[in-house]
Design a protein around this nucleic acid. Sequence first.
DNA 1: TTTAAATATATCGCACACGATATAAAATAG
DNA 2: CTATTTTATATCGTGTGCGATATATTTAAA
Lengths: 152, 152
Amino acid sequence: MEYEQLKLENQLCFPFYAVSRLIIRAYQEDLDALGLTYPQYLVLMVLWENDNVSVNTIAEKLILNTNTITPLLKRMEVSGLIIRHQSAEDQRKVIVSLTAKGTEFKVLAAEIPYKLIKKLKIEPQEEQIQEALILKKKLYELINLLENIEKQ
Amino acid sequence: MEYEQLKLENQLCFPFYAVSRLIIRAYQEDLDALGLTYPQYLVLMVLWENDNVSVNTIAEKLILNTNTITPLLKRMEVSGLIIRHQSAEDQRKVIVSLTAKGTEFKVLAAEIPYKLIKKLKIEPQEEQIQEALILKKKLYELINLLENIEKQ
DNA sequence: TTTAAATATATCGCACACGATATAAAATAG
DNA sequence: CTATTTTATATCGTGTGCGATATATTTAAA
């Protein structure tokens, strides 16, 4: 029995899985220099855009469960990037805020995306930038499709 | 400071990371029915195409390190999907082989890719199939680009 | 207004991923 | 032919991810 649909090279899921891990590996060197992990870097990106948000807000933006986010935030609190405090209005909510260190890291992190492009040894032309934007749009269409499965 | 390149929505890395996890989540239900995890399913796909291969061959095909693969294979041996035995020619090599159970699972797993398409509620037309093939090609180009970073 | 349901976060257990390191066997160099 | 290097796999420690479950607070319902 051949089952073409079971061959690794015919899968769409596997290259997504591989690209995701390889991108994180590529970032690792620059993140290590800041003592960050990739998901911690994502949390910081959320906070740099909107500080003082609830645990749930971060979880929703990163499409992660609280059982992933909670210990992640605890480690980030230990390393002095953020602080967590209970909301006054709604005692169930835990508000996450950047520390001075967490805020300062934004300047250092700003170089990271450019460093990855340099590592890839590509010099994006207008055409390639447009292509990347189209790809990003398709990825978000896929995310929407995949997120709506669970709600059934 | 705005730093457009640090906004989550401007990242290409994040949607890759999200899509990868969401696809695995979508597979979970069908894999659970077989008592498999996603990486175990990938290992089986490698073995269904080429049985009796070394640990390293599997690691290379899945772009995983042996410190991930070794315990993964051990768990698969415990659950009776594979057996591992030392190679006669090269005593360093450990050859991984499918058991009867591991072989039989191929028939059961053959439905999984179709089930995902059903869950997504899409009915792929020729046009969309072509689009998926182009996307897959792009993903493999990216994998090549990302794999070659490390070799420098 | 007491009760039930929903919401927000945390805890537990298990299975990855991966950097760093160890160990044994094979290949190669001097 | 012995010493060195390389190759193949395994071990250890840390940090995710996530299903299942617990706990506290808020909201809604009877």
